[in-house]
Amino acid sequence: MPRPGYMVSEIYKNLLKKRATILYPFKERELVHLPKGFRGRIIFNRDKCIGCQMCFRVCPAQAIKIIEDERGKRPIFFMYRCIYCGSCAEYCPVKAIELSDIFENIAFNKKDLLVK
């Protein structure tokens, strides 16, 4: 049966509820619940890395480059190309790569988005 203004009780109920919006520039960071296993910014552990280049081979976005440092071959990550698929972490044989829950990967300078 059609009834004009069907939502009237709902809108007044919502008037008394707390707003659904979370203030973004993190005045309310505690309201953001990120689950375990969220795919965010890459964290790289140099001590574990054995230089097998697996991450470089599986990366679909070419966000990983292999360079040489004093301890041999190692990857660096360009977060501005990363698509957060998590392939590198999945295929890393020694779990030297992890995805953290940092999701604000924006910077004025590209150098800030390099993970070394």
Binding site: I11, Y12, N14, L15, K17, R19, A20, T21, L23
Partner: peptide, 10 residues
């Protein structure tokens, strides 16, 4: 905005 559970001007 409050009826729609938003903040509105802030």
């Amino acid at each position: 905005a409050r009826l729609q559970n938003r903040i509105g001007p802030l």
